[in-house]
Design a protein around this nucleic acid. Structure first.
Length: 499
RNA sequence: GGGCCGGUAGCUCAGUGGUAGAGCACGUGACUUUUAAUCAUGUGGUCGAGGGUUCGAUCCCCUCCCGGCCCA
């Protein structure tokens, strides 16, 4: 029999013995007066004399993560998933049945204790236990107490084990929760209305990506998991919701990497009457505020870097930055104007060893040159602005330059965190953009945007001048929690089944 | 999809073409202030899966599975 099976059998025998004591082995509730965290947070600095003087009585509970057992006494370490607290049990302070129960406990079991706070000889805050309650059994041995669980595959597949033994994992998801809460507060306090729009859409629009496909049986209808909520949120702006946002999941049927999970969480917000310049300033304010509220500072480590999330962020014009870096790399003068010419841009890309698709125009080539040359240099917050119209089918053109749209992407930590633009609200121009996308689709571009007649119809009712932005929540949390893989900020990242 | 790396006890990891190792965990005994408790002692293995080479494979070769990192 395997070691694990032996240990499970022993634990089951202990459970049976506990039941034989007349103890309820799966009780329905346990009324605590404090969580372990509350006790630690409140009394961690309180001296032993003060604890004796006030005699703090408590009832608390947690999972046993440490056992130091003596002949007629024991220390248990209880965890509430966030903090750990030592409790002290001794035979002469317990009723006989509680002492019998103590001897049948295993690492990982859930228990409740009643007692008062004190400090041990070594000055550790502890509970002097006068009553012990069994709450639930751990039938399987836990990972090792000192090294914890480091096998990343097991950490992702059995996240609960990661959470039990690795306190840092819990902290990452606390940062995530505070990040989302801070964003909600920031937006709602500025008059934005939170909404929910369809996750299943008849046309997967609002971004350039391959969708997941599903089917509705009763309506006998193909549906796509959304790749973005954008077109629905703008319909709401047509309807008069002048400030609106959604925080929810998007799904993209593409590769998995340290920065991509097939489902990921996005904030999108739309703000009537403003343009992308206003959004840049707003984004600086939003992100620095969220950082301070989520982690207490707007300057934080990310890998080997220290990121300063404080206004003003650096600003780079896409074609100018691409041209400047290409000039430096190639040792010859490349101008932004050259990147507007298809043949010249393709020549620059070829010289740089960047592959160009046959269907790509100058705008797409310029964008690919920029990404290839700059992406991993964009550690500090940087707005990359003025994208080519060709790669931006939903953005509004600059009044003075129809080949360029009022759009920016925000890069931090070497990857894209936000994407924003002045929204295209001319329905006729939108139709032309969709038609151009359809040409790309006809040439095999699986990410080209589909025609959406219903959306154009909504635009025909009139979308006011509007600025809109999407912010990748997972990537923002990666930055704020110093996590180098998106899988470390998603509780249950997609994994292939093991069998 | 390509390249590189990994998969050995519940966990963290060594290791070798010839009986499979350590620490933690677990069992037993001792111990009423320890904290990676200690001391003594013992149990525990589909060496990711399949095939091949070999007298003999966890080790060498091939295929596959799972994961990580990088690239596209």
């Amino acid at each position: 029999m395997s070691n694990e099976a032996v240990q499970t059998e022993q634990r089951r025998a202990n459970l049976a013995a506990i039941q034989a004591l007349g103890v309820e082995i799966y009780p329905h509730e346990f009324a605590t007066t404090h969580t372990v965290s509350a006790l630690v947070d409140t009394y961690d600095e309180t001296p032993g004399e003060a604890l004796e003087a006030t005699r703090v009585e408590t009832v608390t509970a947690g999972r046993i993560l440490g056992v130091r057992s003596f002949g007629k006494a024991a220390f248990l370490v209880l965890s509430d998933g966030r903090q750990r607290l030592q409790v002290y049990l001794r035979k002469d302070a317990l009723e006989a049945r509680d002492y019998d129960l103590l001897r049948l406990l295993d690492m990982g079991d859930w228990v409740g204790v009643r007692g008062h706070l004190f400090r041990t000889k070594t000055n550790e805050l502890s509970v002097w236990v006068s009553g012990l309650t069994f709450l639930s059994k751990c039938l399987v041995p836990l990972p090792e107490k000192w090294h914890g669980l480091s096998d990343v595959e097991t950490r992702y597949r059995q996240r609960y084990l990661d959470l039990v033994v690795n306190p840092d994992t819990r902290r990452v998801f606390e940062v995530r929760s505070r990040t989302v809460a801070a964003i909600r507060t920031f937006l709602t306090s500025r008059g934005f209305l939170e909404v929910e729009t369809p996750m299943m859409q008849p046309i997967a629009g609002g971004a350039l990506a391959r969708p997941f496909v599903t089917h509705h049986n009763a309506l006998d209808m193909t549906l796509f998991l959304r790749i973005a909520p954008e077109l629905y949120l703008k319909r709401l702006t047509v309807g008069g919701m002048e400030r609106v946002f959604e925080i929810n999941r998007n799904f993209r049927n593409e590769g998995i990497s340290t920065q991509h999970n097939p489902e990921f969480t996005m904030l999108e917000f739309y703000w009537a009457y403003v343009n992308y310049q206003t959004l840049m300033a707003f984004t600086e304010d939003l992100l620095s505020t969220v950082a301070r509220e989520a982690i207490g500072t707007d300057e934080f480590p990310f890998g080997e870097h220290t990121i300063t999330m404080r206004a003003p962020f650096r600003r780079l014009s896409l074609r100018e930055a691409a041209a400047a870096e290409a000039s430096r790399k190639l040792g010859q003068t490349i101008t932004a104007a050259m990147l507007r010419d298809r043949d010249a841009a393709a020549g620059v890309a070829a010289a740089l060893g960047i592959e160009v698709h046959a269907g790509s125009g100058a705008g797409r080539i310029a964008t690919e040159i920029f990404e290839a040359l700059w992406e991993d240099q964009l550690m500090q917050p940087t707005f990359v602005y003025d994208f080519p119209t060709e790669v931006s089918p939903l953005s509004k053109q600059r009044a003075d330059d129809p080949d360029t749209v009022e759009r920016f992407e925000l890069y931090i930590g070497g990857f894209e965190v936000a994407n924003a633009f002045s929204e295209l609200n001319d329905p006729d121009e939108q139709r032309r953009r969709f038609e151009h996308q359809l040409q790309g689709r006809a040439h095999g571009d699986l990410e080209a945007h589909a025609m959406d007649e219903d959306y154009i119809r909504a635009l025909e009712y009139g979308l006011p001048p509007t600025g809109g932005e999407g912010i990748g929540i997972d990537r923002l949390v990666m930055l704020l929690s110093n996590s180098l893989s998106i899988r470390d900020v998603i509780l249950f990242p997609l994994m292939r089944p093991r069998d």
